[in-house]
């Protein structure tokens, strides 16, 4: 685990320095660990694991929007797992479960591969259509159609700066909507 944690910390430092490829790699690398932790937490609370992917996405959004609270001199993993735990507890509470979630649920899980049957993630998709049109179109273009910021800008006849702003606001509104559920 030591090597993995150090790698994450290095990737996050590079991401903070503006390297979005490192950031992409970091998010890809933490996701299977988060998925395994979310499934384990759900099953411990006696819940079906079918909402694990929604929890994973909620965690990833929070990691993204709160990453300025990570201290670059501290290891990344404890920070990540604290957010993951908070989001898992939140998700369980929304389902009426009051359970103690051990932080080790995340720290000690073995990464799980995405399950063979693709689990539908409903929460973000539901909220996507409620976003203001600009934010929705930009998010759809970048996330769903995998377009770059540049392509999105010319497709929607916006400036690249406006696309960046709409993307960021869209992600923040998604997180706010998830919190309100």
């Amino acid at each position: 685990m030591r090597g993995r944690d150090d790698e994450w910390t290095d990737l996050m430092r590079s991401a903070n320095a503006g390297d979005s490829v490192a950031y992409h790699r970091l998010l890809k690398s933490v996701t299977p660990v988060l998925r395994a932790g979310a499934r384990q937490g759900l099953s411990r609370a006696g819940q079906p694991p079918d909402q694990a992917e929604d929890i994973v996405q909620d965690i990833l959004l929070a990691v993204h929007l709160k990453r300025h609270t990570w201290d670059a001199n501290a290891p990344f993993a404890p920070w990540l797992f604290a957010i993951a735990r908070n989001k898992l507890i939140d998700a369980l509470r929304r389902r009426g479960r009051r359970v103690f979630v051990n932080i080790d649920d995340f720290a000690e899980t073995i990464p799980s591969e995405p399950p063979a049957e693709t689990l539908p993630t409903v929460e973000i998709s539901n909220h996507l259509s409620d976003l203001p049109p600009r934010q929705r179109d930009v998010l759809r273009s970048i996330a769903v159609d995998s377009a770059s910021i540049k392509t999105t800008a010319s497709k929607l006849s916006m400036t690249e700066g406006a696309v960046r702003v709409a993307l960021h606001r869209g992600l923040a509104s998604l997180a706010a909507k998830l919190r309100k559920d």
């Binding site: 996701t31 996405q57 959004l61 993204h64 973000i124 998709s125 769903v144 770059s148 993307l167 960021h168």
Partner: peptide
């Protein structure tokens, strides 16, 4: 939206970063 696509959107938003809470 599958998780890989969400990650793509998050990575594209990497240069938007809030100031420290302090």
């Amino acid at each position: 939206m599958d998780t890989d696509r969400l990650i793509q959107a998050l990575a594209a938003d990497n240069d938007q970063r809030a100031r420290p809470v302090s």
